[in-house]
Computed example of a mutant assay.
Amino acid sequence: MLKVAGFFAGSGGIELGFSQAGFNIIYANEINPLAAKIYEANFKHKVDIKDIKDVDNVPNCDVIVGGFPCQSFSLAGLKLGFNDKVNGNCFFELARMIKLKTPKAFMLENVKGLVNHDKGKTLNIIKNTLEELGYYLHINIYNAKEYANIPQNRERIFIIGFKDKRAYERYKPLGKVPLTKSINEFVDFNALVDEKYYIKESFTRYELVKDIEKYKIYTIAFKQARTNKDNVCPCLLASMGKGGGRTPFIKTSDDKIRILTPKECFKLQGYPSDYIYIHKIYLKHNFI
């Protein structure tokens, strides 16, 4: 069984997928204590809660995985790239770890915006760095609604590297699958949830959302409530729960307006219904 070490593990989404595919997850690194608690509630080992640059106890492994911070490359962010001193240089720390552990393969994930960031220069730097370490690369963009049968418009770039050229040549990209699941299987429009998730009439711009249709997911854009034409969830962002126009919301079966709950968001991210999560959410309800 191939051994996997995960970096920027978050709540364990990538590691969960590898575990379900038969890999042995032996290590995880994550700097956010709350995300680490969620991870530890679902896996049998502790999380190394440190900045990756301070990690020095990573066990030998066959595969390294990591969704290095995307805010620096996201269209929704400031797009500072490697100039972002907090998140932008995390890739190079991950490359350092790959050089140190020399795994048979790795899988790195980030936002689609990485492709065109700085007119493609950023991705070229990443490719050159990894190829100089002796890896053959496959780079693909997948959308959850097209490849995972999950009704979320979530496009991500996956950079997969193999040390062995024969393994690289055997790799086959994913094929598209029909989207047969609807948002009703992920969002409970009839559920009674905690009062903190509801949007009251006293909130700013309530008039923008009061007349939305039921059984669809909306966000605020250009001072309008908008829904995806395919009736799927818009891309969930790292800012979920902090308010703002990009926070998805719904009209419930009893005509109330609320944002999505953490459980619903986890399901829309591909986590199983029995995944254990711990949450501490700050809600501003500033939908402008």
Rank of each mutant, 00 (worst) to 15 (best):
I26F: 08
M1V: 12
L192D: 15
H138F: 06
I220H: 05
L179P: 03
H45P: 01
I257W: 00
E93N: 13
P248N: 02
L137M: 06
I281T: 13
L283E: 08
D56C: 14
L236C: 04
F23A: 10
I217E: 06
P103K: 07
K267E: 05
M97H: 12
N128M: 11
V177S: 02
N89Q: 15
G244S: 05
E131P: 05
N124Q: 15
Y39R: 02
L94W: 06
R226C: 13
P59T: 09
N228V: 09
L192F: 13
T180G: 03
K127Q: 11
Y27G: 07
F23N: 10
Y171P: 01
T122K: 01
D62Q: 11
K267V: 07
T204N: 13
F203Y: 14
G77R: 00
Y197K: 06
K163Y: 14
I276S: 11
P234A: 04
I126Y: 00
N286C: 11
E30G: 02
I14E: 00
E213C: 12
G175D: 14
L123N: 01
F106H: 04
K256G: 09
D62Y: 03
N60Q: 15
D230P: 06
E40S: 09
E155K: 08
F18Q: 01
K216M: 10
I26L: 11
A105Q: 11
T219G: 04
K3N: 08
R170M: 14
N83P: 04
E201W: 04
V55Y: 11
D188F: 11
I199W: 00
D56R: 13
V115G: 01
D274I: 10
K242S: 09
L137K: 05
L179R: 03
I217G: 01
K3A: 05
L283V: 04
I212N: 03
M97E: 15
N89C: 11
D188M: 09
A167N: 15
D48N: 15
P103G: 08
A167P: 06
L100A: 15
V47A: 07
G161C: 04
V55R: 06
D48G: 08
I288P: 09
I212Y: 05
P69H: 03
Y277M: 12
A9R: 01
I150Q: 01
L75R: 13
D164V: 05
E15M: 12
Q152E: 04
K216C: 11
R258D: 05
F82M: 08
K176T: 12
K251H: 07
L174R: 01
F23Y: 13
G134W: 10
V4P: 03
Y142A: 00
C90E: 13
K37E: 14
A21G: 06
G10S: 04
N57I: 10
I38E: 06
P178D: 04
Y39H: 13
L208N: 10
K121E: 14
K165S: 10
N190T: 14
S253A: 15
V177N: 01
A76P: 03
E155R: 07
D255G: 07
L114C: 06
E207K: 12
E264W: 07
T261Y: 06
D194K: 14
K263N: 14
F287T: 04
K85E: 14
G88R: 00
